[in-house]
Nucleic acid binder design. Structure first.
Lengths: 174, 174
DNA sequence: GTAGCTGCAAATACTTTGCATAGAT
DNA sequence: ATCTATGCAAAGTATTTGCAGCTAC
């Protein structure tokens, strides 16, 4: 008899969560998809794998489309959009709207975090601050809101490369 | 000789700022627009007035279009978009992207604040928290980012009306 | 075998742009 | 008089949808 982590039909879900909490690499299996009512098709497996194998990766639908095409896989853009939406609803991915008007997705590893985005090179770093989270909850309570989600994005220029430098040059012109 | 607040050509700008800091009602005059290099046209004056005379008002381009039309003023939607963009660049308005895919604008009264948005009725409340602001700056410094902007939105269900109640009903279904 | 997926093209939603006319300074 | 703004329609960008054929279970 094999041991399984978790309980009954939902074991896939719990083991996935556990892996995530333990910071082990996460690999979504065909069964994981089936348990969420999604058929394990090639496009879906490759899309989720792309997110899982990229570190700190925030991608638009176009990004996913392009990267899969580079790997010789020609998946229609409509399918990418559909699958990303389904994965977000299934909790596998998180969607964000940074300053641009395109949605970006990242893998959901179960650790909530916020983002700081470089407006010049597009670099995204993640952070978590318990104090900010606490204050947010207090404010929601004061205002009598039942908060279900929040978005905190810091926008600026990173020290890497010439981003901060270029920014100064630009503001000198104006 | 008349006293003026501020210095030389920029007096309009400084007096406007002062009014705002003193929480006095803000009225953008034709001269205010001229000083920003914008001609004082009827569409522009009516649009800025609409924002100035509405309390806690967050409006999309469509909202502005509709409300001016209700007042018997038929301004093209393209003009609304153009003027809102110009006003944002001139610092008269602030632009936000809440969870929907439409941009919303509000008057810039010079007091920074964040937003808590009801996902059911669309109500928007404003808040300011010095502790959150402080932590944001510390994080940016740690990460070596020069932050120029940030967005903090809390999404939830407000206690007014049946928003929280309906939310519970919905999650019971799912 | 059947329910659910994919690709394509067409449709949609929001926003921007080209151009001729109208208006502000 | 000149330079800029407006309205309309057309274009653009991101995303969604209808439908016929294909695939996982």
């Amino acid at each position: 008899m094999r041991y399984s982590i978790g309980i009954g039909r939902k074991s896939g879900y719990y083991s996935r969560t556990l892996r995530s909490i333990q910071h082990l690499p996460m690999t979504t299996t065909p069964q994981d998809l089936n348990e969420r009512g999604l058929k394990a098709t090639l496009p879906r497996l490759r899309i989720i794998r792309l997110f899982e194998t990229s570190r700190d990766c925030h991608m638009t639908a176009e990004d996913v489309y392009r990267r899969l095409k580079e790997d010789g896989l020609d998946i229609g853009l409509a399918t990418i959009y559909r699958v990303l939406t389904q994965f977000e609803q299934a909790g596998l991915l998180l969607r964000h709207h940074f300053e641009s008007d395109k949605a970006v997705y990242e893998i959901n590893r179960g650790h909530h975090h916020d983002h700081i985005v470089c407006l010049h090179c597009g670099k995204v770093e993640e952070f978590f601050d318990a104090e900010i989270e606490k204050r947010q909850n207090e404010i929601a309570q004061e205002k009598n809101f039942e908060v279900v989600d929040h978005a905190l994005y810091l926008y600026g220029y990173c020290a890497t490369g010439d981003c901060a430098e270029r920014r100064r040059a630009e503001s000198d012109e104006g």
